[in-house]
Each structure stands twice: as C-alpha cells, then as structure tokens.
Design a protein around this nucleic acid. Structure first.
Lengths: 202, 202
DNA sequence: AAAAAGTCTTAACATACATCAAGGAATTGG
DNA sequence: CCAATTCCTTGATGTATGTTAAGACTTTTT
C-alpha cells in the first residue's frame, strides 16, 4: 500500500466519519475492503450491457454516467467528481446488465468494492447501513429534482439551473457533454447560448 | 383499534416480513408507530410547498404524486397503489417545503409515520435500516429507469413502455393523468392513440 | 510538424409536440 | 334525474428542438 493509496482511503474514511463514528478497526476494515482503481481519460469502469461489478467512490478526477439509446444518442445521467459515488444499483444488486456507461473524463482514481465485500462491510459495521440508507435517500432526492426540472422546464431554464447549481461545470466538461446532460444536441446548445448572448448584449 | 385497522397493519407487517424476520414485540411496535389515515377521492396527504410530515404506506386505493410547474402544468412523478410508499424524502428528512403533491385518486387508506416515530422505529428495530436502504435503492433504480426512458424515447415509445410495465393503468387512472405521467398534454395523447389505432387497422 | 481526432459554430429545413379553440361524451353530485 | 363538472376529441396553427451539412478552430497523437 503506497502513500497515495492512503490518501484515497483517508478521503473515504473522512467521508464516512462525517456521517458516523468509526473505530480504528472499522477504519482498517474499510482500508481492506475498498481497493484503489485508476482509470485513464476515456477509460470505462463498466459499460452499458456489462454487469456493474463495483460500486465506486471517486477520490480524484471526474466521471460521466451516461446511457446510449437505440439511435446512438448519449444521455448523461450525471457527472461525478471527488467524493461522489458511481455505479448502477440495479446491476450491482440485482445482477442485471447495466443501463449505464461509467467513463473517466480525465485521469481519475476511485475506491471500489464488490457486492460480496459490501455485504461484509454492512455485516461488520452495521452503522454503515444507516449511512448508506441516508446517502441513497439523498441520491433519490437529487434525481427526483433532476427529473422534475427535466420534464417541466425548457432547455434554457435547465441550462440556467445547471449553471446555478454547478457554476464551474463549463470549465470541467466539454460543451457537447453539457448538452447531453441537458437533453439537447450540441448544435442546439450552441444556438441557445448565442441567443442568450445576443439578448444580454441588446 | 378496529378490525379494519388490523388489516392495514397486517399488510405492512406482511410487507416487512417478506424482507426481514420480526418478533412479536417488533410487530406490536409497528402497530403502535404507524397510524391509519383515510383520504377521500381528491384529498391530499400534503401539497407542494407544505412540509411532508408523514411517510405513507398505501394499504388501499390509489394516489398520484405530482409537481405543478410555474405555468400551472401538472407533472405526475408516479402513481401509487397498494403496498407502495408515498412521501417526499427531501421534505420529510431535510424539512424543506415539498416539491410534490400527494393526492388520492379514489377513497384510499394509508399507514403513516412521522419523522420522530420513524427514528424510533429504526432505533428499536435496526434490521429495518437495511430494509429501508434496500427499498430506497429500489426506488432509485425505478426512478433512474423512468428518467432514462423519458429523455431517450418519444411520447409513443414512453406510452408503450408504460402499458407494457403496467397493463391495467388505463383502467385505474383517467387518460389526462396518463398524459401527465408521460409528459405530454391530453390533446397529444388523444391524437397519438388515434394514430396508433389507425395504423393497427390499416 | 504534420496528421488526426475532437470540438464548436452556423444555417436551412424538418418534426414532435404545444397551444388555442370548440364541441361532445361521460361521470359526478345534489 | 337533471345540472354541473370533468373528461375526451378534433382541427388549425405555433415553436422549441432535431436533423443534416459544412467549415473553422483546438487538442491530441504520431
């Protein structure tokens, strides 16, 4: 285990300790059960149609989770940065082929755990049941908000909502992937931004 | 406590027992902490902007959970029937005004619990932490699927997906609310069904 | 440095669905 | 059982966004 590995595990342990107290042996277990995985830019943690074998905690870099539809269009579900979780629960727990691709946007690092070790983690640190219940609830509320915005607002309002919620996003991911997150084509986003600029000049 | 009350609690206890073993005292606690609530057709459990004070388990009838946008359009997030959960987690746990309305589509009955009693439930029956973690994961995967279908398929494909997944839905809720679930106007759904019928006659 | 791959912009045209308007059918409620 | 709602359908027209095509600019790879 290198010094760098410890930094990654330190981040995860700090994340857990914000949510529940941990003993030293808890921390040792966490270091044992989560393993480091490094991905180069454009590499995939897993692809649509494969099984999501790992749940991942991002310790460095950035990811996008997206679905490719039958016309070949990509739809970004969310971007994940440091301290975010990536995975496909339906696939991880129900052993279904995943509907999602998880791809690194830059050289990135995660801590991953497979289902068996996750169950071991719950068995040995029951307090993490509550932690992950709360995390999952939070994810659900974020997705619900995202869904309601998507169905009720037009592309420009969705764009404004994104910029307000995540002001640095335009520095972090290319514009065509922002379009894909917003549910429009790159051409449409380009057009839209020109319209906005014209209006703000006028 | 009437005989009818016991039926409702029996349903909830049966639901829990499918997921974890319960002692007699667990069951007694569940009967104590969840209380019956009956709603007439069109009554609300809570409205958008109010606080979601109760998480509810539907024991009879049907509900719709919907968001009304700033143009006054209603967007159905989901319909809930027997053995489904209703509520707004963001509001229930974070004490924010709810983004959702929860309305009975018929004379309906639920078992409700407030946050304090929910915490008491977790404290006294820790196994329910896991049960609700898994339930919440399941809700998240269902919502993720719904989101991906919504952004990647056109209205007709979304309609077909709904009918296939829930073949009785057209008998259960009026067509304009199905339109609202699909994210289109009633006029569009009516037109669409005419097109489908014409094509199938052809 | 050159080549290749990826990214952004613009424009003309197409389309799915919204909007507006109106009348008829079905259901509900007094 | 009649009146009042609520619900459904149809048509004409509008609009946000998709589609296709092409060129310019940028970054990565060789």
């Amino acid at each position: 285990m290198t010094a760098n590995n410890d930094v990654a595990h330190d981040k995860l342990i700090a994340y857990f300790e914000k949510r529940t107290p941990l003993t030293e042996s808890d921390k040792q277990l966490i270091r044992k059960l989560y393993t480091i995985k490094k991905l180069k830019k454009k590499e995939f943690l897993f692809r649509q149609g494969e099984y999501c074998k790992y749940e991942g905690f991002v310790t460095a870099g950035a990811f996008r989770l997206f679905y490719t539809d039958d016309k070949g269009l990509e739809h970004v579900l969310y971007f994940a940065f440091e301290n975010w979780w990536v995975g496909d629960m339906a696939s991880f727990y129900e052993h279904e082929p995943s509907a999602l691709n998880v791809q690194a946007l830059q050289e990135s690092e995660l801590l991953v755990i497979d289902e068996q070790h996750k169950e071991q983690l719950y068995a040995q640190i029951p307090a993490l049941e509550k932690v992950f219940r709360v995390i999952t609830q939070k994810h659900l509320t974020v997705l619900q908000k995202r869904f309601l915005v998507t169905v009720s607002a037009n592309a420009e309002a969705r764009f404004n909502e994104l910029i307000q919620r995540c002001p640095t996003i335009e520095q972090l991911v290319p514009q065509h992937q922002i379009a894909s997150y917003l549910g429009i084509l790159p051409e449409s986003l380009s057009r839209m931004k020109k319209q906005i600029a014209k209006r703000e000049m006028g």
